Amino acid sequence: MTSQQNSSSKPASAALYPHSSRYSRIIGTGSYLPPRRLSNQDLVDQLAADGIETSDDWIVERTGIRARHFADAGVTASELALPAARAAIEAAGITAADIDLVIVATSTPDMVFPSTACLLQHKLGIAGGAAFDVQAVCSGFVYALTVADALIRTGSARKALVVGAEVFSRILDFKDRTTCVLFGDGAGAVVLSASDTSGILATELHADGQYAGILCVPGSVSGGQVTGSPLLRMDGQAVFKLAVGVLDKVARSVLEKSGRSDADIDWLIPHQANLRIMHGTCKKLKLSLDKLIVTVDQHGNTSAASIPLALDLAVRDGRIKSGDTVMLEGVGGGFTWGAVLLDF
């Protein structure tokens, strides 16, 4: 607990809900990666068979990625989400029946509708509580956690299951070496519970649709046919330039809202997209790199799953402990971005 936290019995974030002493805390985390792991060299060999040239050195130098996991054919986002959800529920010391809200952040849902969250809810053997998806691409988990926090604070839920789950391998163009080497599949989950003591201190979300074209899958379904392209398109340089600036601003904004400073951050978990972006964000916050949680080297960019995957890994290996202050921040297609500051 920091000195600033001790200075007042009421967290600064309570100003968002002035008539409530109800807060939300993460009480359990979980994650799941599909078994099929592809090293850079595995992917290089696969692409070479199709006449696409790249190399392990090229991938590592530009992104920091060394491996990723791909789901087998037919495996859906809800199927990846299920073991991650069960692990989070077990870690929380509750049962699935205690969950009264399910939010899944995904850009690769099982189907057009119903939501992946509804399908996951059914697979968990529960019913009755609200269940819906959030689509904010790589910012999705930060968006979903923010929504769950608000619903708990206002009394609409007591225990929320918040999941990021993606099968991005289904929307990659394996003829485009600049994008197909970046992404992977996986799922991460947390259980967020109502509490008398603060956990989530401050949140902030943003979007700017004028940048929709720099990262998108410009396709849809109409009349039983796919219109446009169902494959990912990205302007990497434009994304890089925008990401570093907005992540710094939104991180500083949630620090200000919560009455904390960058010196209070014990751990930084940014969206795991590119190691250079992550290092840049860390340096702007004047944090040493040993406070940065990194999984992009082994997972690739798992979009909405990347932050909860990294969070669960750091909790389970003992780095993140009770009382630590953690900054989560995401940036993704839309263009969307946001941050959550929390005491674990």
Rank of each mutant, 00 (worst) to 15 (best):
V134S: 01
H122V: 06
G155E: 03
A165V: 11
S156V: 01
K123Y: 11
L172T: 11
R170E: 04
I171N: 07
D176R: 02
A148H: 15
T179C: 03
A148Y: 05
L172I: 06
A127H: 14
K175D: 09
G129Y: 02
R177D: 00
L172S: 04
S139H: 03
S156A: 13
A157T: 14
F141Y: 10
S139D: 08
S169N: 04
A131V: 08
T179V: 12
E166G: 08
D133G: 12
R158D: 15
Y143H: 10
A165I: 15
D133H: 14
A148K: 03
A131F: 04
G125E: 10
D176E: 12
C138R: 09
R177G: 01
G128E: 13
V163D: 11
A160H: 12
E166N: 07
L161S: 14
T178Q: 08
V167R: 09
I126D: 07
V142F: 02
V142K: 01
G125Y: 08
A148L: 13
A130M: 09
I126L: 05
K175W: 04
A131N: 03
V142Y: 02
S139I: 04
L145K: 02
A160R: 10
K175T: 06
A144R: 09
K123W: 08
V147L: 14
F132V: 01
L145R: 00
G129N: 10
H122I: 06
S156H: 14
